[in-house]
Design a protein around this nucleic acid. Structure first.
Lengths: 123, 123
DNA sequence: TCTTGACATAGAGTTTACTCTACATTGTAT
DNA sequence: ATACAATGTAGAGTAAACTCTATGTCAAGA
Protein backbone atom coordinates (compact mmCIF):
# COMPACT_ATOMS: atom_id res chain seq x y z
CA UNK A 1 0.00 0.00 0.00
CA UNK A 2 0.92 3.63 -0.48
CA UNK A 3 -0.13 6.64 1.50
CA UNK A 4 -0.32 10.39 1.06
CA UNK A 5 1.31 12.48 3.74
CA UNK A 6 -2.09 13.07 5.33
CA UNK A 7 -2.85 9.37 5.56
CA UNK A 8 0.64 8.59 6.74
CA UNK A 9 0.36 11.25 9.39
CA UNK A 10 -2.70 9.50 10.81
CA UNK A 11 -1.09 6.07 10.61
CA UNK A 12 1.98 7.18 12.49
CA UNK A 13 0.49 9.75 14.84
CA UNK A 14 3.08 12.20 13.64
CA UNK A 15 1.96 15.60 12.43
CA UNK A 16 2.31 16.45 8.77
CA UNK A 17 4.79 19.14 9.73
CA UNK A 18 6.79 16.65 11.71
CA UNK A 19 6.96 14.25 8.78
CA UNK A 20 8.24 17.00 6.52
CA UNK A 21 10.69 17.99 9.21
CA UNK A 22 11.96 14.41 9.43
CA UNK A 23 12.39 14.36 5.70
CA UNK A 24 14.26 17.64 5.85
CA UNK A 25 16.56 16.02 8.41
CA UNK A 26 17.04 13.04 6.12
CA UNK A 27 15.45 10.54 8.44
CA UNK A 28 13.03 9.35 5.79
CA UNK A 29 12.79 9.91 2.04
CA UNK A 30 9.34 9.20 0.63
CA UNK A 31 8.87 8.85 -3.12
CA UNK A 32 7.14 11.57 -5.13
CA UNK A 33 4.41 11.23 -7.74
CA UNK A 34 4.21 13.17 -10.99
CA UNK A 35 2.77 16.16 -9.13
CA UNK A 36 5.59 16.22 -6.66
CA UNK A 37 3.32 14.85 -3.92
CA UNK A 38 4.98 12.58 -1.37
CA UNK A 39 3.81 9.02 -1.09
CA UNK A 40 4.83 6.66 1.69
CA UNK A 41 5.06 2.86 1.54
CA UNK A 42 4.53 0.14 4.11
CA UNK A 43 8.28 -0.12 4.33
CA UNK A 44 8.33 3.55 5.29
CA UNK A 45 5.81 2.72 7.96
CA UNK A 46 8.00 0.06 9.53
CA UNK A 47 10.95 2.39 9.32
CA UNK A 48 9.19 5.32 10.95
CA UNK A 49 8.01 3.10 13.77
CA UNK A 50 11.61 2.17 14.39
CA UNK A 51 12.62 5.83 14.32
CA UNK A 52 9.95 6.49 16.93
CA UNK A 53 11.35 3.72 19.09
CA UNK A 54 14.84 5.18 18.91
CA UNK A 55 13.49 8.61 19.75
CA UNK A 56 11.37 7.33 22.63
CA UNK A 57 14.43 5.70 24.10
CA UNK A 58 16.34 8.95 24.05
CA UNK A 59 18.37 8.80 20.86
CA UNK A 60 18.82 12.32 19.50
CA UNK A 61 17.79 13.15 15.94
CA UNK A 62 21.41 13.66 14.91
CA UNK A 63 22.25 10.07 15.75
CA UNK A 64 19.14 8.69 14.11
CA UNK A 65 20.22 10.71 11.10
CA UNK A 66 23.52 8.89 11.10
CA UNK A 67 21.78 5.57 11.42
CA UNK A 68 19.49 6.46 8.52
CA UNK A 69 22.50 7.31 6.39
CA UNK A 70 24.08 3.94 7.15
CA UNK A 71 20.83 2.20 6.36
CA UNK A 72 20.73 3.91 2.98
CA UNK A 73 24.18 2.49 2.25
CA UNK A 74 22.79 -1.02 2.52
CA UNK A 75 24.38 -4.22 3.73
CA UNK A 76 27.87 -2.76 3.80
CA UNK A 77 26.94 -0.84 6.90
CA UNK A 78 25.34 -3.71 8.78
CA UNK A 79 28.24 -4.00 11.19
CA UNK A 80 28.27 -0.35 12.05
CA UNK A 81 24.52 -0.22 12.52
CA UNK A 82 24.82 -3.24 14.75
CA UNK A 83 27.41 -1.45 16.83
CA UNK A 84 25.12 1.57 17.21
CA UNK A 85 22.24 -0.60 18.27
CA UNK A 86 24.18 -2.57 20.86
CA UNK A 87 25.54 0.65 22.32
CA UNK A 88 22.07 2.05 22.42
CA UNK A 89 20.88 -1.08 24.17
CA UNK A 90 23.46 -0.46 26.86
CA UNK A 91 22.26 3.08 27.32
CA UNK A 92 18.70 1.85 27.54
CA UNK A 93 19.62 -0.70 30.18
CA UNK A 94 21.33 2.05 32.11
CA UNK A 95 18.32 4.36 31.83
CA UNK A 96 16.07 1.66 33.22
CA UNK A 97 18.40 0.98 36.11
CA UNK A 98 18.58 4.66 37.00
CA UNK A 99 14.83 5.06 36.87
CA UNK A 100 14.38 2.03 39.10
CA UNK A 101 16.66 3.58 41.68
CA UNK A 102 14.73 6.82 41.51
CA UNK A 103 11.53 4.86 41.94
CA UNK A 104 12.82 3.17 45.07
CA UNK A 105 13.78 6.53 46.57
CA UNK A 106 10.46 8.02 45.66
CA UNK A 107 8.71 5.12 47.35
CA UNK A 108 10.70 5.81 50.51
CA UNK A 109 9.69 9.43 50.44
CA UNK A 110 6.05 8.57 49.93
CA UNK A 111 6.20 6.20 52.90
CA UNK A 112 7.71 8.96 54.97
CA UNK A 113 4.92 11.33 53.99
CA UNK A 114 2.36 8.73 54.96
CA UNK A 115 3.76 8.60 58.44
CA UNK A 116 3.95 12.36 58.67
CA UNK A 117 0.34 12.76 57.66
CA UNK A 118 -0.76 10.18 60.19
CA UNK A 119 1.31 11.74 62.92
CA UNK A 120 -0.21 15.14 62.25
CA UNK A 121 -3.73 13.72 62.06
CA UNK A 122 -3.33 12.31 65.55
CA UNK A 123 -2.77 15.73 67.10
CA UNK B 1 27.06 24.04 57.29
CA UNK B 2 26.55 26.89 54.91
CA UNK B 3 27.86 27.28 51.41
CA UNK B 4 28.48 30.03 48.94
CA UNK B 5 27.01 29.59 45.51
CA UNK B 6 30.38 28.45 44.19
CA UNK B 7 30.71 25.76 46.84
CA UNK B 8 27.11 24.73 46.46
CA UNK B 9 27.59 24.48 42.72
CA UNK B 10 30.37 21.95 43.26
CA UNK B 11 28.42 20.01 45.86
CA UNK B 12 25.40 19.66 43.61
CA UNK B 13 27.08 19.45 40.23
CA UNK B 14 24.83 22.21 39.04
CA UNK B 15 26.38 25.25 37.40
CA UNK B 16 26.24 28.57 39.18
CA UNK B 17 24.05 29.88 36.40
CA UNK B 18 21.69 26.97 36.82
CA UNK B 19 21.38 27.60 40.55
CA UNK B 20 20.50 31.22 39.93
CA UNK B 21 18.06 30.12 37.26
CA UNK B 22 16.40 27.72 39.70
CA UNK B 23 16.11 30.51 42.19
CA UNK B 24 14.59 32.76 39.56
CA UNK B 25 12.04 30.01 38.90
CA UNK B 26 11.33 29.80 42.64
CA UNK B 27 12.54 26.25 43.03
CA UNK B 28 14.91 27.21 45.81
CA UNK B 29 15.36 30.34 47.90
CA UNK B 30 18.74 30.56 49.57
CA UNK B 31 19.32 33.07 52.36
CA UNK B 32 21.42 36.17 51.75
CA UNK B 33 24.19 37.61 53.89
CA UNK B 34 24.70 41.28 54.66
CA UNK B 35 26.35 41.79 51.28
CA UNK B 36 23.51 40.22 49.38
CA UNK B 37 25.52 37.07 48.71
CA UNK B 38 23.55 33.84 48.64
CA UNK B 39 24.29 31.16 51.16
CA UNK B 40 22.92 27.65 51.01
CA UNK B 41 22.29 25.30 53.93
CA UNK B 42 22.41 21.52 54.26
CA UNK B 43 18.64 21.57 54.10
CA UNK B 44 18.95 23.28 50.73
CA UNK B 45 21.29 20.49 49.71
CA UNK B 46 18.75 17.79 50.53
CA UNK B 47 16.07 19.77 48.76
CA UNK B 48 18.09 20.32 45.62
CA UNK B 49 18.90 16.63 45.45
CA UNK B 50 15.21 15.93 45.51
CA UNK B 51 14.61 18.48 42.78
CA UNK B 52 17.22 16.69 40.72
CA UNK B 53 15.45 13.42 41.23
CA UNK B 54 12.15 14.87 40.07
CA UNK B 55 13.85 16.35 37.04
CA UNK B 56 15.70 13.16 36.20
CA UNK B 57 12.43 11.30 36.25
CA UNK B 58 10.87 13.66 33.77
CA UNK B 59 8.99 16.14 35.88
CA UNK B 60 8.98 19.53 34.15
CA UNK B 61 10.22 22.61 35.96
CA UNK B 62 6.72 24.09 36.06
CA UNK B 63 5.47 21.19 38.12
CA UNK B 64 8.46 21.20 40.41
CA UNK B 65 7.73 24.88 40.86
CA UNK B 66 4.24 24.02 42.01
CA UNK B 67 5.60 21.41 44.38
CA UNK B 68 8.08 23.93 45.77
CA UNK B 69 5.27 26.39 46.38
CA UNK B 70 3.30 23.77 48.30
CA UNK B 71 6.37 22.86 50.30
CA UNK B 72 6.78 26.50 51.28
CA UNK B 73 3.24 26.46 52.63
CA UNK B 74 4.23 23.83 55.16
CA UNK B 75 2.26 20.98 56.67
CA UNK B 76 -1.07 22.25 55.34
CA UNK B 77 -0.04 21.09 51.88
CA UNK B 78 1.16 17.62 52.87
CA UNK B 79 -1.84 15.93 51.32
CA UNK B 80 -1.52 17.69 48.02
CA UNK B 81 2.20 17.06 47.81
CA UNK B 82 1.50 13.44 48.59
CA UNK B 83 -0.96 13.32 45.72
CA UNK B 84 1.60 14.79 43.35
CA UNK B 85 4.21 12.28 44.42
CA UNK B 86 1.97 9.26 44.06
CA UNK B 87 0.91 10.42 40.62
CA UNK B 88 4.51 10.91 39.70
CA UNK B 89 5.29 7.42 40.95
CA UNK B 90 2.68 6.10 38.56
CA UNK B 91 4.22 7.96 35.67
CA UNK B 92 7.61 6.62 36.63
CA UNK B 93 6.31 3.07 36.72
CA UNK B 94 4.82 3.64 33.31
CA UNK B 95 8.05 5.04 31.92
CA UNK B 96 9.95 2.01 33.12
CA UNK B 97 7.43 -0.35 31.59
CA UNK B 98 7.59 1.42 28.25
CA UNK B 99 11.37 1.39 28.22
CA UNK B 100 11.39 -2.30 29.02
CA UNK B 101 9.15 -2.96 26.05
CA UNK B 102 11.40 -0.91 23.83
CA UNK B 103 14.37 -2.86 25.14
CA UNK B 104 12.75 -6.17 24.26
CA UNK B 105 12.04 -4.97 20.72
CA UNK B 106 15.54 -3.67 20.36
CA UNK B 107 16.90 -7.03 21.48
CA UNK B 108 14.83 -8.71 18.79
CA UNK B 109 16.20 -6.36 16.18
CA UNK B 110 19.76 -6.95 17.30
CA UNK B 111 19.21 -10.70 17.08
CA UNK B 112 17.88 -10.28 13.59
CA UNK B 113 20.93 -8.27 12.59
CA UNK B 114 23.18 -10.97 13.99
CA UNK B 115 21.60 -13.52 11.71
CA UNK B 116 21.76 -11.18 8.74
CA UNK B 117 25.44 -10.54 9.27
CA UNK B 118 26.16 -14.26 9.57
CA UNK B 119 24.11 -15.01 6.50
CA UNK B 120 25.99 -12.46 4.46
CA UNK B 121 29.35 -13.60 5.79
CA UNK B 122 28.64 -17.10 4.51
CA UNK B 123 28.31 -15.93 0.91
C1' DT C 1 -16.17 27.89 -13.84
C1' DC C 2 -15.46 28.38 -9.20
C1' DT C 3 -14.22 26.92 -4.88
C1' DT C 4 -12.59 23.84 -1.58
C1' DG C 5 -9.18 20.86 0.43
C1' DA C 6 -4.90 18.54 0.40
C1' DC C 7 -0.55 19.23 -0.72
C1' DA C 8 4.01 21.96 -1.82
C1' DT C 9 8.12 25.18 -0.15
C1' DA C 10 10.66 28.52 2.63
C1' DG C 11 11.27 30.38 6.54
C1' DA C 12 9.67 32.24 11.07
C1' DG C 13 8.15 31.19 15.74
C1' DT C 14 7.68 28.26 20.03
C1' DT C 15 8.96 25.68 24.16
C1' DT C 16 12.02 23.97 27.65
C1' DA C 17 15.86 24.32 30.21
C1' DC C 18 19.48 26.05 30.50
C1' DT C 19 23.99 28.89 29.51
C1' DC C 20 26.39 32.88 28.64
C1' DT C 21 27.58 37.98 28.40
C1' DA C 22 28.13 42.55 30.09
C1' DC C 23 28.88 45.16 33.61
C1' DA C 24 28.97 46.43 38.67
C1' DT C 25 30.50 45.19 43.56
C1' DT C 26 32.96 43.20 47.08
C1' DG C 27 36.45 40.26 49.83
C1' DT C 28 41.17 38.67 49.95
C1' DA C 29 46.04 38.30 48.93
C1' DT C 30 50.29 40.90 47.74
C1' DA D 1 46.77 50.35 47.42
C1' DT D 2 45.81 47.38 43.97
C1' DA D 3 44.84 43.52 41.46
C1' DC D 4 42.18 39.47 41.10
C1' DA D 5 38.66 36.12 42.00
C1' DA D 6 33.97 35.37 43.37
C1' DT D 7 29.67 37.15 43.40
C1' DG D 8 25.59 40.16 42.02
C1' DT D 9 21.78 41.58 38.30
C1' DA D 10 19.56 41.95 33.84
C1' DG D 11 19.01 40.32 29.80
C1' DA D 12 20.59 37.96 25.48
C1' DG D 13 21.79 33.63 23.26
C1' DT D 14 21.66 28.48 22.53
C1' DA D 15 20.12 23.73 21.36
C1' DA D 16 16.72 20.38 20.30
C1' DA D 17 12.67 19.21 18.27
C1' DC D 18 9.18 20.53 16.66
C1' DT D 19 5.10 23.66 15.01
C1' DC D 20 3.15 27.19 12.49
C1' DT D 21 2.57 30.87 8.81
C1' DA D 22 2.55 32.72 4.30
C1' DT D 23 2.06 31.86 -0.11
C1' DG D 24 1.40 29.00 -4.15
C1' DT D 25 -0.22 24.75 -7.02
C1' DC D 26 -3.51 21.53 -8.46
C1' DA D 27 -7.23 17.98 -8.95
C1' DA D 28 -12.06 17.11 -8.01
C1' DG D 29 -16.84 18.24 -6.79
C1' DA D 30 -21.10 21.73 -6.94
Amino acid sequence: MEYSIGEFSKLTNLGIHTLRYYEHENLITPKRNSNNRRYYSDKDLVWIEFIKRLKDTGMPIKQIQHYAKLRAEGDLSLNERMKMLTMHRESLNEQIKVLQKHLAKLDDKIDFYHHEIERIAKE
